[in-house]
């Protein structure tokens, strides 16, 4: 009989450690942030060019992550990319004239949406649209502008 009890204890210990490591993986290794799905609101912003932005890219205000990109779609009328973002409900004090820009973390890092709050009293609510946006910087465009600018300068010199 004692043998069975010892065996059951060991099995219990094994299952407990196994479930413990599942929890460890969920909590410590990954970005599991509780059941935050319900407590959030969605805003969207239209960009001329969303560059390398991806679904799940972070949305930050002043360096603090407040949400994630949940969808990137193309507006067929204006040919703009519409970026939907899910913002955590605790960050509900963003003014209506907040501007959204797409930046890159470091030279080769991932792209993210940065929100810069404006000064209006009205606040952004669920499903509202950010009007003022700044597109992602595309390296080729910058290089192109740089080259053409140089050419113009050269031809001006010759004249």
């Amino acid at each position: 009989m004692g043998n069975t009890v010892k065996q059951d204890t060991l099995v219990g210990l094994f299952v407990a450690i196994g479930i413990g490591s599942l929890f460890f993986m969920a909590m410590q290794i990954s970005n599991f942030s509780g059941f935050s799905d319900e407590k959030s609101y969605t805003i969207s912003a239209a960009f001329e060019n969303s560059g390398g932005l991806k679904v799940k890219s972070p949305v930050v205000v002043g360096g603090v992550r407040v949400g994630r990109v949940i969808a990137i779609t193309l507006d067929q009328k204006k040919f703009q990319s519409v970026v939907k973002m899910k913002i955590e409900a605790q960050y509900n004090q963003l003014p209506e004239d907040t501007t959204a820009s797409i930046f890159t973390a470091g030279l080769l890092g991932e792209q993210y949406v940065s929100l810069e709050p404006g000064g209006m009293d009205d606040l952004l609510s669920d499903n509202s649209m950010i009007e003022i946006t700044q597109s992602a910087l595309v390296l080729e465009e910058i290089i192109g502008q740089f080259l053409f600018k140089d050419k113009d300068a050269d031809s001006a010199k010759k004249e």
Partner: peptide, 15 residues
């Protein structure tokens, strides 16, 4: 039942 638990253990101990 055992293998997922053992795998979780493997990954956690590995980290």
């Amino acid at each position: 039942i055992s293998l997922p638990l053992l795998t979780a253990l493997f990954s956690s101990v590995g980290v």
